[in-house]
Amino acid sequence: MTTAEQRIAELGLVLPKAPKAVTSGYVPWVQTGNTILISGQLPWKDAKTLIHEGSIGAGITVEQAAEACKQATLNSIAQIKDAVGDLERVRCIVRVEGTISYAPGHINETAKALDGASAVVKGIFGDRGLHTRMLYPVPEIVFKSPCIIVLQAEVD
């Protein structure tokens, strides 16, 4: 059986080091019972640089927004690994939430961008990656980020 970390490599992805909290007053993750709740993750590629900046239709394409969602999801998965030590402890990804920035006239493209996050979760965790999902389209996000991704996972 292929592990989540083997799937990451097979997909040509790199699991980054779990990013630190951007400001004080909160933590990147909390475990309550068997549930891991991840704070919103930005698409940092190296803990200080976003892979894309802007909104769909204003500075970036829907494809670039999907790439940003993929990176923010990898950062979220890195938080899960930081929390539990081994991604094989993940029973399932319960929920993916995405806040996606869009320019007027591009709101319907936000779901396509969030598909990037869903594809990463399903690709890495297989059936354990089937999840519920919520999309929050907004006109602007901090640091000019195109997205914020939040994951919830059930673990052993």
Rank of each mutant, 00 (worst) to 15 (best):
M1C: 12
T3W: 03
Q6Y: 07
Q6T: 12
R7I: 06
R7W: 06
I8R: 07
I8K: 09
A9M: 14
L11G: 12
L11P: 05
L11F: 10
L15C: 12
K17L: 15
A18W: 00
A18Q: 02
A18M: 08
A18F: 00
A18E: 01
P19L: 10
A21D: 00
T23P: 03
S24M: 04
S24E: 08
V30S: 07
G33Y: 04
N34D: 05
Q41D: 14
W44S: 05
D46P: 04
A47P: 02
K48V: 13
K48H: 14
K48I: 14
T49W: 07
T49G: 11
L50D: 09
I51M: 11
G54K: 01
S55A: 14
G59D: 04
G59I: 04
I60C: 08
A68K: 00
A72H: 03
A72V: 00
T73N: 08
T73Y: 06
N75Q: 07
A78I: 05
I80P: 09
D82Q: 09
D82E: 10
A83S: 12
D86T: 00
V90I: 12
V90R: 00
R91P: 06
R91G: 11
R91D: 13
C92H: 08
V94H: 02
V94N: 05
G98T: 00
I100M: 09
Y102H: 15
A103G: 04
P104Y: 03
E109N: 11
A111Y: 05
K112P: 15
A113E: 08
L114E: 11
L114V: 00
D115S: 14
G116N: 02
G116Q: 04
G116C: 10
S118T: 09
A119W: 07
V121W: 03
V121Q: 10
K122N: 15
G123D: 13
F125K: 00
P139F: 12
E140S: 15
E140T: 14
V142F: 12
F143K: 13
F143N: 13
K144M: 06
S145H: 02
P146C: 04
P146D: 08
I148G: 13
E154R: 04
D156L: 03
